[in-house]
């Protein structure tokens, strides 16, 4: 499993798609492939208030990636050092086996090159000590990149502040 985690603070996400555009810009992709994507669900009225959900879908960088097992040429690989799953372009023959194998639709088709594109957490940036493109410029800063245990802290902190009572200190 990748040692990294890409956390989406859904409370702050406004579904603006800047992450998708910055990702494509950074990878210089043509129309079509979206290594990450925001899928809007809703709006729906919940208790008389309209609510929308913006589901952020990058690659999950699985521990035992279906795509890596399926790839017949060894183009789809998992980096031993940190678990990032990526495509080595010169080995990809465009057979689309990974596209069939991934349960979440992460591998994307590049019609210009006839090869697969996918989220690699911008490993070139990560290796320089930077964050993935989508995280670096996220409009509201709702995307965060780091170690799993650090990421969940945002929600714990927020929950703590919402339930804190200063009058009943035993709670």
């Amino acid at each position: 499993m990748s040692q990294y985690y890409l956390f989406q603070d859904s409370k702050k996400c406004i579904g603006c798609h800047a992450c998708e555009i910055q990702c494509k810009t950074n990878k210089d992709l043509p129309e079509g492939p979206k290594p990450c994507q925001i899928i809007q669900v809703g709006p729906k009225f919940i208790n008389n208030l309209p609510k929308m959900s913006f589901i952020f879908m990058p690659c999950f960088h699985c521990e035992n990636p279906w795509c890596v097992s399926a790839c017949p040429t060894g183009a789809m690989q998992q980096r031993a050092s940190d678990g990032i799953v990526f495509v080595q372009k010169d080995l990809c023959v465009g057979c689309k086996t990974c596209v069939s194998a991934c349960p979440w639709g992460a591998p994307q088709w590049n019609p210009d090159t006839g090869k697969v594109e996918k989220c690699d957490y911008c490993k070139d940036r990560v290796d320089q000590g930077l964050e993935p493109a989508c995280v670096t410029t996220c409009t509201t800063g709702c995307l965060k990149f780091g170690k799993v245990e650090e990421m969940t802290q945002i929600r714990r902190q927020r929950h703590a502040e919402s339930v804190a009572s200063f009058e009943n200190s035993s709670f």
């Binding site: 798609h17 800047a18 555009i21 910055q22 410029t137 409009t139």
Partner: peptide
């Protein structure tokens, strides 16, 4: 090569909206 919000400006902090992210496009 890359465009991001100006990290020195409070409230911007490196961030860029979808239209700004399409500057290279």
């Amino acid at each position: 090569d890359w465009i991001q919000g100006n990290p020195h400006v409070a409230g911007i902090d490196g961030r860029l909206c979808p239209r700004g992210s399409a500057g290279k496009s």
